[in-house]
Amino acid sequence: MKKPEGAWALVICALGWSLGGVFLKYVNVNSFAIAGLRSTFAFLVMAVFTRQLPHFYVKDEASGKVDRAQTIYLWLSALSYAATMIMYVISNKLTYAANVIFLQYTSPVWVILFSAIILGEKNRKIDYITFAGIAVGMVLFFADSLMENQSGEFAETALLGNTIAALSGVTWAATTLFQRKQQLLIAEKIRETGKIPSHNTSKDAFMLAQIITASFGLPFIFLMERGVPDLRSLTFLLLLGLLQMGIPNIMYSIGIKKVTALSASLITMIEPLMNPVWVFLFVHEIPTVKCIVGGVIILGFILLREFVSKKR
């Protein structure tokens, strides 16, 4: 029987993640600078809470030499997650927060397509059904933009914002695939040597991603008109680093060890469900009907795949 604190850790994680959309609406800073400052605060939070700094390479426990394959996938994972964070911030400034989070959750499509190539895993019939369902949901997201049937604040930027959000789904899938590949390599090493790695490579990848994003985004502060963020922007940037990125990532690393993969997938669905709710309550931003229907279709097919996979 699973310990209840694992599930609660994931609930806290998902609720924290879901605050990104509403917090970003209160930050009056260019998108790259937002990404850089948020990751700076998130890195500091993770370092303080875990009392650890990331490893920049993976050492072979048997020989003591650098494991090149694992190190490559460590950095590919970190770079993919950094790209995801940057595009998440940019797209939130260009389109509806609900659009961003639902389109980011199209990542299973790309996992399905590339898992056979990168991981050598075979796809099943339910995978292709999920792919078709998510494709329908994505078409609905872009329908208004393509048919020029939008009006309001995001009418001119929605197509670009939706496109970047969809690309963030690709990079998030790449993060998942590269981390999974690394875990397969670790399992192979354990079978060969019987030695368990001394550090958590997934945590390393997430912390390295914060460093990469911060290094990329912080120089854009100098392009700001006022030179520094105003008090409101700085407050919400701190909240983004603490409540939306730092603590949730720590909670995820705790919770994922204590519940099944299916339970983790279902619990973290709180994020795409609550993200538009917070934005509606505090910013009064309402996405189009097509976008809402598209999001429901995407989540529905992802949940269907999880249930069928668990049953098998």
Rank of each mutant, 00 (worst) to 15 (best):
A14H: 00
G16M: 01
W17M: 11
L19Y: 10
L19I: 07
K25Y: 14
S31T: 09
A33W: 00
A35W: 01
A35K: 02
G36T: 03
M46S: 07
M46P: 03
L53V: 09
L53Q: 06
P54K: 07
F56T: 14
K59E: 14
A62F: 14
A62N: 15
G64R: 11
K65A: 13
K65P: 08
R68M: 14
I72D: 13
Y73L: 15
L74E: 05
L76F: 08
L79W: 06
A83H: 07
I86L: 09
I86V: 12
M87R: 05
V89D: 03
I90F: 07
K93I: 10
Y96Q: 00
A98K: 09
L103Q: 06
Y105P: 00
T106S: 10
P108D: 04
W110Y: 06
W110H: 09
L113V: 08
S115L: 05
S115D: 05
L119R: 00
K122N: 11
I126D: 11
F131K: 07
A132T: 07
I134V: 11
A135E: 02
V136S: 07
G137P: 00
G137S: 02
M138H: 02
L146P: 01
L146M: 11
M147H: 15
Q150Y: 13
T157G: 04
A158T: 12
G161W: 03
S168E: 06
V170P: 04
W172F: 14
W172S: 13
A173L: 04
A174R: 01
T176V: 14
Q183I: 15
Q183Y: 14
E192S: 08
E192Q: 13
K203A: 15
F206Q: 09
F206W: 13
L208H: 02
A209G: 07
A209L: 05
Q210S: 07
A214G: 10
F216G: 06
G217F: 03
F220R: 01
M224V: 05
E225C: 04
G227L: 03
V228H: 04
D230P: 01
L234V: 04
F236R: 05
L238H: 05
G246K: 04
P248Y: 01
P248M: 00
M251Y: 01
I256M: 15
K257C: 10
V259H: 05
S265C: 09
S265L: 08
S265D: 10
I267E: 06
T268Y: 06
T268D: 10
E271F: 03
M274W: 11
N275L: 01
N275E: 03
V277Q: 11
V277W: 03
W278I: 02
W278C: 00
V283Q: 10
I286A: 10
P287D: 08
T288R: 02
V289F: 12
K290Y: 14
V293A: 13
V296K: 12
I302S: 12
L303P: 07
E306R: 13
F307A: 15
F307H: 12
K311T: 15
